[in-house]
Simulated scan of single mutants.
Amino acid sequence: MDRADQYWAEVFHVERAELRRPGVHFTYVDEPRAGIYVLQLDETVRVRAPMRRRADVDGIRIETALDGAVWRAALADSDPVVLGPAAHYLAGEDIPSSREARVPSIDEVRRMTERIPPEEVEESGVLDPDVDRFGLWAAGTLAALSSLSPWVGGRTDVGLLVAPGFRGRGLGRRVAAMALNAATRRSGIARWRCREENAASVAIALGFGLQPYARNLGIRL
Score class of each variant (00 low, 15 high):
N181E: 14
V103I: 14
D94E: 15
V109Y: 01
T113I: 09
E120P: 01
V103E: 14
L127P: 00
A49D: 02
D42E: 14
V14T: 10
L221C: 13
F166N: 05
L90M: 10
R167Q: 12
M51L: 15
G59C: 07
A143I: 10
V81A: 08
S187Q: 12
D130V: 06
A9G: 01
R48M: 13
G140Y: 09
Y37N: 09
P96V: 10
A214D: 11
P22W: 05
P117R: 04
R155E: 04
I116C: 02
L136Q: 02
A144C: 04
A163P: 02
A65N: 04
D5R: 10
G153P: 01
L171F: 09
V38I: 08
V103S: 08
P118G: 07
D94H: 13
F208N: 03
D157H: 13
R155Q: 14
R174Q: 15
S105T: 15
I189Q: 04
D77E: 15
R186E: 15
F208G: 04
D56I: 01
R110V: 09
A49F: 03
P129L: 11
S105A: 11
Y213L: 12
L160M: 08
L161C: 01
L180D: 03
A176M: 14
A179T: 08
A34D: 06
V11S: 03
A199V: 15
A69R: 14
S146F: 03
A73S: 14
A86G: 06
A4Y: 15
A177R: 09
R195N: 05
E120I: 06
N198K: 05
R115I: 01
A69V: 06
A138G: 07
A139E: 15
E122R: 15
V38R: 02
L142E: 08
A199I: 13
L210I: 07
A34R: 07
A177S: 15
R33D: 13
V70S: 03
T44E: 04
L19M: 11
L221N: 11
P129M: 12
A9I: 05
W8L: 07
V202S: 00
H25T: 11
L180I: 06
A69L: 07
L83F: 08
T141G: 00
S124D: 03
C194E: 05
R195V: 02
V162T: 11
S146Y: 01
S146A: 12
A143L: 08
D77W: 00
P118D: 14
A87F: 06
W192L: 12
R72K: 12
N181Y: 03
L90F: 04
P22R: 01
R133F: 02
D58M: 13
L160H: 03
E31L: 10
I36M: 09
V109E: 02
D130M: 04
R46T: 08
S147N: 10
V70H: 06
H88C: 05
A163G: 03
A138K: 15
W137L: 06
E123I: 13
N181G: 08
Y213I: 04
R52D: 09
R186P: 07
M112A: 02
P32H: 07
E43K: 09
R21E: 14
T27A: 04
R193G: 01
W8G: 01
D107Q: 15
R191N: 10
C194L: 06
A182S: 14
Y7A: 07
E108Q: 12
V158I: 15
G23P: 04
G218N: 10
